[in-house]
């Protein structure tokens, strides 16, 4: 059996000025083809999007056992979340 094309993780930024978001993965021989494949597979060629591709091997991830220490401190900082604040309706959209 021949060698499999590497796996790439695909991140796409839509038109609304958001940050790149993970949308899925695919296989491609190299980064250039991974971008083209991402365009064909995940955007069906919407103009004006930005695509990042990262070879899956190159992603470093936190270990599941670190879940506690890494995430819990921020969970207690609920003031970072907009829904923490109770804004009166009269103020309008914020």
């Amino acid at each position: 059996m021949s060698k499999e094309w590497p796996l790439w993780e695909i991140f796409i930024r839509g038109q609304h000025g958001l940050s790149h978001r993970h949308v899925g993965s695919l296989h491609a021989p190299d980064a250039e083809m991974a971008i083209k494949n991402a365009r064909d597979v995940y955007t069906r060629r919407n103009e004006g999007v930005s695509i990042w591709v990262v070879e899956a091997n190159n992603i470093a991830a936190s270990a599941p056992s670190e879940k506690g220490p890494l995430y819990e401190p921020s969970e207690s900082k609920i003031y970072r979340h907009p829904t923490f604040y109770d804004i009166p309706d009269d103020v309008g959209h914020m």
Binding site: S2, K3, W5, P29, D30, M33
Partner: peptide, 16 residues
């Protein structure tokens, strides 16, 4: 399709 998958991978490796 085997030759296509192998060909494109070989090219990627050459490029690298």
């Amino acid at each position: 399709g085997a030759w296509v998958r192998e060909g494109l991978l070989a090219h990627a490796e050459k490029k690298r």
